[in-house]
Amino acid sequence: MPDDDFEAFVEQRYSALLCTAYLLCGSRDRAEDLLQSALAAALPKWRRMDHPEAYLRRVMVNQLANVWRRPIREIVTAVLPDRPGHDPAIEDRDELWTALRRLPVRMRAVLVLRYWEDRSEQETAQILGVSVGTVKSHASRGLDRLRELVPAPSMTAANGEN
């Protein structure tokens, strides 16, 4: 089963893919599980795969959508942070991040792929296995939804409100 190419791919791309997984699901533990699961699914098909990164992203999004089938509203941190006793007033007051976690999985995936990975609409559509129109619609509605969820004053003057 071990495959040198696959091993090299994992070593080189794991951190980047883990970032994507984390942005998709909002939990570090869950991101590791999600990526590990997707890589385990990819391993037997590795030699036949033309676009492994696209495949992995699609598997991760599908896993999230299938398991949760609902927006993520908040995350319970099961593992203690590096430094306990931090004040949420300072560390956790990130309204845009909180709002992002409330979006449906596929809408959130479109925003992550389009605006964090800088994928084109075409690429995003191919990765997610949906039409370009769906990507446009999800991106537009996702941004609209974020504007609704994040109050305007803190979007423009976020000092002290992070």
Partner: peptide, 20 residues
């Protein structure tokens, strides 16, 4: 702002050892 938020949170992600 969305890009900045995603960047900031992605920066904090650290993989566990021995992923392969």
């Amino acid at each position: 702002e969305l890009r900045a938020t995603l960047d900031r949170h992605a920066d904090d992600v650290r993989p566990r050892p021995e992923p392969y």
